[in-house]
């Protein structure tokens, strides 16, 4: 090996290269490691819509708040969602007002909470992409098997393939999400390559991210669409067949609303008929809540890479990590939060 990944990246002087990372954990690591600071002028990184918190509409938080405060359920959630603003209030605010809200590490912990609290209705806030969905499906299937009737989920799960299609043209190449690819496998990226979409699957250590970026720099020189799996120690072409089968058994595709991007057909997942009794919306007759966020919020354009976070009129003024307006500012993995916290402009 003569040239390191970093040398390949830093010495790039070709045509402008726009690379979109579609995974919030990539965004987080890229900022934490200071990778943007070593990029040459010609390379731009764009933080795409790969943070489930960022793309979850305000109405979902409103539904969760309704369940906690009006229906008095015990909400179990990943910590990521606690501070996300709904139309009126966040889960943190609902907790102050007496809502019972617990952070959990796993959907299976939410199920266990239900088993340990038979007198309470436990609802798990199911956000996340292909990586996280199998855990939810496992919890729901176990609930059915064990006849646990006080457990249900409020779903806002999404899948990535149709999102890539919607983002086509936003970047010259994608840094595909390593842990989504663990589940889905990489065939989809070969199909995208046929459609002219380029990208590489990347892992999450400093070396893995740098070598993936170096791969994009090198392969971009060939002027034809490319795909390379730069995370083969974890990601295979087939993905995780057991996980995919489980998702298919428990859930079916549906249209989904992405905060900032609108409805993307077929990009969501909902419970199948066999498991419909675990849908908290049905069980608790949750009224339709289409709550929209602040009109001035430009999260959607940020997610598509059309503007930088600091070009949003609210950025750093009305909207900061402590008083977030848009989801990209509240999520620790959101582009706006990262720009603000790491002093980027």
């Amino acid at each position: 090996m003569t040239e390191t990944a970093r040398e390949i990246i830093e010495s790039y002087r070709g045509r402008p290269l726009r690379i979109m990372e579609v995974c919030g954990t990539h965004t987080h690591e890229i900022f934490r490691l200071g990778i943007r600071k070593i990029l040459p002028e010609k390379i731009t990184l764009i933080s795409g819509p790969g943070c489930p918190v960022c793309v979850t509409p305000a109405g979902f938080i409103d539904e969760a708040v309704f369940l906690a405060l009006e229906k008095k359920v015990l909400l179990c959630t990943f910590g990521d969602l606690i501070r996300v603003p709904g139309t009126q209030k966040s889960l943190a605010k609902a907790r102050e007002e007496g809502g019972e809200i617990r952070t959990v590490y796993s959907p299976l912990d939410a199920l266990e909470t239900a088993e340990k609290n038979p007198g309470k209705n436990v609802v798990f806030l199911s956000v996340g992409f292909e990586t996280t969905v199998p855990g939810t499906c496992l919890a729901v299937r176990k609930a059915l098997e064990r006849k646990i009737t006080n457990f249900s989920i409020l779903g806002a799960n999404k899948t990535m393939p149709n999102a890539y299609a919607a983002l086509k043209g936003s970047a010259d190449a994608f840094l595909y999400p390593g842990h989504v690819s663990v589940i889905t496998g990489t065939k989809i990226y070969e199909e995208l390559r046929e459609q002219g979409v380029s990208g590489v699957v990347a892992g999450f250590t400093a070396e893995e991210i740098l070598s993936s970026l170096a791969a994009i720099v090198r392969l971009s020189g060939k002027k034809e669409p490319f795909f390379l799996n730069c995370y083969p120690r974890v990601v295979t072409r087939e993905g995780n067949p057991a996980a995919m089968a489980l998702i298919r058994e428990v859930m079916q595709p549906c249209d989904a609303r992405w905060r900032g991007l609108g409805v993307i057909p077929g990009s969501g997942l909902e419970l199948r008929e066999k498991y419909i009794s675990f849908d908290a919306r049905k069980r608790f007759s949750v009224p339709e809540m289409t709550g929209e966020g602040n009109k001035g919020c430009q999260c959607g354009r940020v997610l598509k890479g059309e503007i930088k976070p600091c070009e949003c009129p609210l950025f750093g003024k009305a909207c900061t990590p402590l008083k977030p307006v848009g989801a990209c500012m509240v999520s620790n993995e959101g582009a706006c939060s990262a720009f603000y916290q790491y002093g980027e402009n």
Binding site: A5, Y105, T131, G135, E208, S211, A215, R233, V235
Partner: peptide
């Protein structure tokens, strides 16, 4: 590889060896 309480994949190699291979291939 563990995510949210579920083992989702086997890890077949350590990160360093893998990136070395990729850099060699490039």
């Amino acid at each position: 590889m563990v995510h949210a309480g579920i083992a989702i994949a086997r890890i077949t190699e350590d990160a360093e060896k893998e990136t070395d291979k990729i850099m060699e291939a490039l």
